[in-house]
Design a protein around this nucleic acid. Structure first.
Lengths: 196, 196
DNA sequence: CAGATTTTGTACTCACAGTTACAGAAAGGC
DNA sequence: GCCTTTCTGTAACTGTGAGTACAAAATCTG
């Protein structure tokens, strides 16, 4: 008797969150207005606030959705077969390519949110941190495996290396919002990996 | 007869721009309201708009001020005496320290602006790009000198290395807005430099 | 001192951001 | 078919963001 009473919604909740994620990603949190949301989500204001409570709550859902969708990308790239260094380079190149292919140059929602909100919105900051830690963890696993298999030098601390890779990744996400030449960025990635 | 007629201003233009820079840096462009500016600049709205035209124009002045002030930091750190690798590490550490010491965790105004505005405000994007290119140039000079003196390996392209250092720097500026442990970041910097 | 000129403070405007109110629509339960 | 419940659309409302208007204040010039 909990859930099947009353008028059913006319929209797919997940689809709407996806679209909201896209919009926040493109425009940033503050720059996105309720009217923007209504326009691109294809639902009325009534439904919007009834279903999600507030812009801020919807944004949290969008952040979580982003985490679930994007985390996979790095994980998958690192899980491919082949030499570890190549996989890391491929992962970075993938990010560069996604960003420079994207007409809107939206970069990374987590990075953008770190820059826009992390210092003033504690919850957002924590969500972003968690994403960063997660990615760092994926790198750490890859590095450890590479060290164990003898592909990578073992005199470097795996955690430090992983964090450096995250730093590089985050930096790339910012630079692709401004810098024009993806080839230049790609070449700089090789430098990052040459050290390992 | 050009300039010494009429009531003289009650404020120092440069001081006001400094304060505006600080505020934009702390809060971001959109989050900073005219009232915020009036409050912290210590001048009335009349003067504000009379002297600077608009929030956006003042922001451009603030960006340029930031460029002039911050560019020096990296330049100076790289110009110190000593081995090149140490100088690069010192420059990065300096940035980490400045950021983690800062109670507001403001990061880097250029990076924050890249994330907030670069894709929607062309002029802001160009100013930020110019700052990035400038810093990259400083790194390039340092790398080339190090290669010439035999301190650094010469099989890596100096431009690519410099761009990688910029990427690292930019990534650090973002991460210091969220991550807590500066020591961890510092250790990751050593990895970046180990490659050279 | 009488303009002329520039700066300042205050009050105002206008639009829009973010949200709420609420009446009606569309379902299920009995 | 009626009651209950949940959803939807529209119209509000309140606050504030960004900027303007303009009269009064403070200077320089002659």
């Amino acid at each position: 008797m909990v859930n099947s009473m009353g008028r059913p919604p006319t929209f797919e909740r997940d689809e709407v969150i996806d679209k909201a994620m896209d919009l926040f990603w493109r425009q940033g949190y503050r720059a996105t207005t309720p009217n923007d949301l209504v326009d691109t989500l294809g639902i009325g204001k009534g439904s919007l606030y009834h279903a999600f409570g507030s812009k801020r709550e919807l944004f949290s859902l969008a952040l979580d959705r982003y985490r679930d969708q994007q985390a996979v990308l790095i994980d998958r790239a690192l899980a491919e077969p082949g030499p570890i260094k190549d996989r890391i380079i491929a992962a970075m190149r993938l990010i560069i390519e996604l960003n420079t292919t994207d007409a809107d140059r939206r970069g990374c929602l987590a990075v953008n949110t770190a820059a826009e909100l992390a210092t003033v919105d504690e919850d957002a900051g924590e969500r972003v941190s968690a994403m960063f830690e997660r990615t760092t963890g994926a790198f750490t696993d890859a590095i450890r495996a590479g060290q164990a298999s003898g592909e990578l030098r073992t005199d470097l601390d795996a955690d430090a290396v992983a964090l450096h890779l995250l730093t590089t990744l985050v930096g790339l996400q910012v630079l692709t919002r401004t810098t024009l030449d993806p080839e230049r960025l790609a070449r700089s990635v090789e430098v990052a990996v040459a050290a390992l």
